[in-house]
């Protein structure tokens, strides 16, 4: 190997990017060539100085805080049933202040929707579902035993949620949790289907409109229905037909309700 070639390969050698044959050739060349060896030592020294860490520029805390805090905030303002990416991006671009500005009219829009709409607080439900998937947030009571989950809610809510184990239908109950949606406390039951998580929220309502509404929000499927003066909302990343199967299994009066 000539020095000229070695000068270039020296760097790849230093970076451990040479194949075995080239590596051997380099080693052999350096044994014979003091000049290249000196160069190599220079570059090794340079590398060591650079990698000591004082040159690394870490993101300022303000920037990090802005982004970590902006994510949940950004999910909330887009309260329309349609996924709207652009407003999310804009809200984040303008940071917190702008996010608030965007959020306010949308909340009004959302609350007007609530008054007459079936897709009540859809984004809120999905946000809650997403939040629940984060570590340590999924369940307050972890139990595959349905007889543990139901009594756990006693005294924590002003209603008794309907708790069913649907393991027979392929949707084992894995736990429960208290959550808040649209300003009231709700019961959240957590079911699993394969590796997918289903959150089933329920809370009492005054009217018993028997509408079942299926919607999608940011790729999550949401099914809402009302029965026996209880509002139910199921959210999951399962596809819609699978989620519908789950809902049918839950609605099926043949499966026993836990007491």
């Amino acid at each position: 190997m000539m020095c000229h070639d070695a000068r270039l390969l020296l760097h790849a050698y230093l970076d451990d990017e040479l194949d075995a044959a080239q590596s051997v050739a380099m080693t052999r060349h350096m044994q014979a060539c003091a000049d290249c060896t000196a160069h190599y030592a220079d570059f090794a020294q340079l590398r060591q100085a650079m990698t000591q860490g004082s040159l690394y520029r870490r993101a300022p805390d303000a920037l990090r805080a802005q982004w970590t805090a902006a994510m949940p905030a950004a999910a909330a303002p887009a309260s329309s049933p349609r996924p709207r990416r652009a407003p999310i991006a804009l809200a984040m671009a303008a940071g917190f202040a702008a996010a608030l500005l965007f959020a306010t009219p949308l909340w009004f829009y959302a609350s007007r929707q609530q008054a007459g709409g079936a897709d009540t607080g859809l984004s809120e439900v999905v946000s809650s579902h997403i939040r629940s998937l984060q570590q340590q947030h999924l369940m307050d009571v972890v139990s595959t035993d349905q007889h543990t989950v139901k009594p756990w809610f006693d005294g924590k809510l002003d209603f008794a949620p309907r708790v069913k184990d649907l393991a027979g239908a392929g949707y084992p109950l894995v736990g429960g949790r208290l959550d808040a949606l649209e300003g009231h406390s709700v019961a959240a039951l957590v079911y699993k289907h394969g590796l997918h998580i289903i959150n089933l929220y329920q809370w009492p309502v005054s009217t018993d409109a028997a509408d079942t509404a299926a919607t999608q929000w940011h790729g999550y499927n949401v099914l809402c229905w009302t029965r026996g003066r209880m509002r139910y909302v199921a959210v999951s990343d399962l596809n819609q037909s699978e989620l519908r199967q789950f809902v049918l299994a839950f609605q099926d009066d043949a499966t026993p309700v836990m007491r």
Partner: peptide, 22 residues
């Protein structure tokens, strides 16, 4: 257990902003 829940392959168009963070 919650750890396991993260491992399922994310539905591509699902969970956009949630997984962006992670």
């Amino acid at each position: 257990m919650p750890n396991k829940l993260h491992r399922h392959p994310p539905n591509p168009q699902a969970s956009a902003s949630a997984s962006f963070e992670g």
